[in-house]
Structures are given as C-alpha cells and as structure tokens.
Amino acid sequence: MADEHESSHAKDKITETFHDEDSSSSSDSDSKPPPKKTFPVPPNRANANNVSWKEKPVHDLLGGAKAADLFLWRNKKKSIIVLGSVTIIWALFEMIEYHLLSLLCHVLILVLGVHFLWSNTLNLFYKCPQFPQVALEEDTVLQIASVARLEINNFLEVLREIASGKDLKKFLTVIAGLWVVSIAGSCCTLLTLVYICFVLLHTVPVLYERHKEKADVLLDKGEAELKKQYEVLHEKVLSKVPKSFKEKKLA
C-alpha cells in the first residue's frame, strides 16, 4: 500500500510539472507578439524605380493622361483642333499684330450681340429656350486654387534644393538651361517661344515614338559627350574649389 501511495504521489508530481511547463510555455507564447507576415515585393514594382526613362513608354513619360493622348495624336481630330486653335491665336497676335485688349472687347461684343438676338429678336418668330447661364462653382475654383498652390510650393521647393548646392551637376544644368532660354527670349517674344514649345510637344514625342531605336542611339552619344565635357569641367574648375567653401555652403 505504501508503494502504491508513493507511486501515485510521484505520478501526481510528474503531471504537475508537465502542466506547469505547458502553462508557462503557453503564457510565453501568449505574451510574445505573433510574427509579422512579410510579403515578397513583386519584381516589377521593385525594379520600377531602377528603370531608365528610355525603357519606359513615351505615353507614360508624358504623364499617361489625356494630355499624353493629345501630344501623341491618339485622337487626330482633337490634336488638329487644339494645334489649329493655338496657331490661329499665335497668328492673330504675332503676324496680324492683334492686341489682347481688342480681342477681349470684340469677344464680349459678340457674346452680348448673340445674347440680345437670342433673347429678343428670335423669340418673336421661334420659341427659343433661355440663353444658358454660365457660372463658376465654388468647389471648382477651390480645387484649382489648391492644385495651383501645391504646384507652386513644389516648384519653390525644387528651386531651393537646387540652389542649396547639394547636387552641383543639377545646379549647373539648370543654370545652363536658363541661359539658353534667356538667349531664345532675346530673339523672339514670349508668345512665340510658348508656341514653339507647344509645336515641339506635338511633334517631337510622336517622332521619338516612331523612331525610338535610332533616337536612343543618338541620345546615348550625346549623353556620353556631355559626361566627358562635365568631367573636363570638374577637373579644371570644380576640383579647384576649396573644400572649406563647399562645407560652408552645404552647412
């Protein structure tokens, strides 16, 4: 009887120890947070930022919206209408030397005359509907103002980053671009310069899309030549700039 009592007592101790270990392990597992699931990044999305702009479609480079369809002549009627309207406006102001104030006055005269005929004369013979009322909605104006504010702030931030001197190559590129634009501005008016840029947007992307392989070869040669010129400039001029001046500028 004593042996049976001792054996049962030992069994109870063994079961208690196993129960304590199970409870401690379960409490430890409850206290520890479950491991976070990690999802593998798709290779297309991971390498999206490393893709060169030459490997992207021209439609995506232009924003991929309706403006890109317009510049790439996806809808020929709309592209012709827009380009023709801009050409007429440029011809009025530059070739015929039409003035903006005169144009606004003539447009208002035309609108008022049509409204007068619509409201008075035509109603004597036909039952015409009321002249459509034109009004700007408050939400539309606020959206345009908010978008303009964000774009202006982003532009000012980019200018601040360029002027800080952290990227000297970008700074010199912007200075050279502004110098070229200033030379072009001295040769023609602002309207003509805007019109030339608009025509280039309607022609260069289409030509580049059709002759992409040949254009990429020429662009690679031009990029290599620019890198050589920049290395020469860096060796002769930029490398001689004192380091203390660069550190103060970056600070």
Rank of each mutant, 00 (worst) to 15 (best):
F39W: 04
L200N: 02
G64M: 02
I81H: 02
V141W: 15
V114R: 12
I89C: 05
H106W: 04
V158P: 00
P34C: 09
D139V: 15
K166I: 13
L219V: 15
G165N: 03
A10P: 06
R149Q: 08
E225N: 12
L219C: 03
V181L: 13
V111F: 10
E151P: 00
S182P: 01
A2V: 14
T173C: 11
H234E: 10
L250F: 05
G84N: 04
L150T: 09
V147P: 00
Y208W: 07
G63M: 02
D3W: 11
Y195S: 00
Q133L: 09
G64N: 00
K78W: 14
R210L: 15
A2M: 13
L191S: 11
S23E: 07
N50P: 04
P35A: 11
N120W: 08
V114S: 01
L238H: 01
Q143I: 11
P129R: 12
S239I: 06
S26V: 10
W179E: 11
L101E: 14
K170Q: 06
S26L: 15
G64F: 00
L226H: 10
K77D: 06
I80N: 03
H202C: 13
T17C: 08
L112M: 05
S26E: 05
K248S: 03
K228F: 08
L117I: 14
L172M: 14
L238C: 02
I14S: 02
H234R: 12
L233T: 02
T189V: 03
W179R: 11
L112T: 12
I96F: 07
N153K: 05
T203L: 15
S7N: 12
N154R: 07
C197I: 08
V204F: 02
V217L: 14
T121R: 05
Q229D: 02
F71C: 00
G165A: 04
I152G: 04
L156I: 07
E223C: 07
R149T: 14
K127Y: 06
H106G: 14
W53F: 12
A68T: 10
D12W: 11
L172T: 14
N154Y: 01
L172F: 08
L218Y: 09
D20A: 09
A67D: 05
W53Q: 12
K236P: 00
L101C: 07
L178K: 04
E55W: 10
D3V: 14
N50V: 12
K236S: 02
L219M: 13
